[in-house]
Design a protein around this nucleic acid. Structure first.
Lengths: 233, 233
DNA sequence: AAACATTTTTAGTCTTACCTAATTTCTCCC
DNA sequence: GGGAGAAATTAGGTAAGACTAAAAATGTTT
């Protein structure tokens, strides 16, 4: 039973988008609301209701009317297959075709529905089995396992501590360009200098003498791990 | 005026498939019949009639009812854009991702509708501006120009002459595998030994002492150029 | 030129997936 | 416990793109 849970083939582009969105929204396991899906996919809530009925009939999710939805195992497996495709594509486009981390998302978003499993596995082979995409997100395995990320938002790290920048959402190109302009590339280490109250900005020091002030919203999107001084040796 | 004729963006997958099929069928300039399109795309003739009406309304082709269709300049440009994508993809998948010439077609067929122009141009850059796809078909330029091919079917080459294998359709994987198994790779030189009448088989000699007998249908699909003995120096 | 065959088009359905508008359900507050 | 407001669903419509069956145009034969 170790293998994948019969990932259903031949899902429509729309179906794949819904499953992916529901998976992303329901990462914590709780039920996902219609309005959240509507917002994520930029469609009217009524359209979502209609699609949820079809997806529930196909046993890809369970729908409790007026309450929300939850992916079934086959639904989750199908969603993770798309997530794998998306992240492998982002990795490949970045490493082999010169894309920047702010422009790959859009391209991967279209390609993920068109590539074959074989092509994805060929890309994986060329890349040497990458574990994370260019934004630090873990790439699910072929059988649908995904690494648990235990990252902390920058807004929750106490001043004085050192941290490493580990992950950020790939959705907004402008934000990604701005982050890079601050000197924050994946794996960058920095010290938290100050944190203003009431959702105020966070000040960090990326390199000796260079401080950056980061607004709360942006800081909250930066996922980090706290660096233990002298971790090795 | 030198540039492309305003290639319309945002065509549906179906629309792109129709334009590509009509372009391929109408290579000689004559009108293309409904039934030919239906057969090429494996849809009912009635479905083709419906789509032709939409395409004519969009000014992508001219439709004379009961007679046939012909692409307009914008239609031809759009078709050549798809052909370019398809052939660049086939070249890239073969050269960079280890696909064989018999398996690339299917993958390219799906990807051609999903890739951006930017990705295609990036692939072109990695490949060093290839002029032909893995089956010898010319790759249209970005502005929609395409090389005229003046190849001869193997069935029309007289015994005693030497020829070079230049191009073959990418559609049938089994046929491609068989062709390769005969020692016929693109650019291979051979001598025509014998040609039986009444659409009979053609015998060729690929290497000293090794003769191959090729059925008429297959031989007709092999496009070649006649080799002039001692062409250089 | 009439009759038959072929090709194409029209007519009428179906499915997917979206929309707006109207209704229903849930939640929260008084 | 009743009502206001938010959220979700149903109802009814549109567009693309496919289908089958029936009708019309074209071509071929005698």
């Amino acid at each position: 039973m170790g293998a994948a849970a019969a990932a259903p083939a031949g899902l429509s582009r729309s179906t794949e988008d819904y499953l992916k969105a529901i998976y992303a929204l329901g990462a914590e396991g709780g039920p996902v609301q219609t309005s959240a899906i509507a917002e994520a996919l930029e469609v009217a809530p009524a359209s979502v209701s209609g699609m949820l009925k079809r997806l529930a009939e196909a046993r890809l999710l369970e729908h409790v009317p007026y309450r929300g939805v939850q992916l079934t195992l086959p639904g989750r497996t199908a969603a993770l297959r798309i997530v794998r495709r998306h992240r492998v594509l982002e990795s490949y486009l970045t490493s082999q075709l010169g894309y920047d981390w702010d422009s790959v998302h859009e391209e991967a978003e279209r390609l993920e529905h068109a590539v074959s499993d074989e092509l994805i596995e060929r890309m994986v082979r060329v890349l040497g089995d990458p574990q994370h995409d260019p934004h630090g997100a873990p790439i699910p395995s072929r059988s649908g396992e995904i690494e648990e990320t235990a990252h902390v938002p920058l807004t929750e790290i106490d001043p004085g501590l050192c941290a490493e920048f580990r992950m950020v959402s790939d959705k907004d190109p402008e934000r990604l360009r701005y982050i890079a302009s601050l000197g924050l590339v994946l794996g960058a280490e920095f010290e938290v200098i100050e944190r203003k109250p009431f959702r105020g900005p966070v000040t960090i020091c990326v390199r000796e003498g260079i401080q950056q002030v980061i607004g709360y919203e942006l800081a909250a999107s930066l996922r980090c791990t706290i660096v233990v001084e002298g971790g090795a040796a």
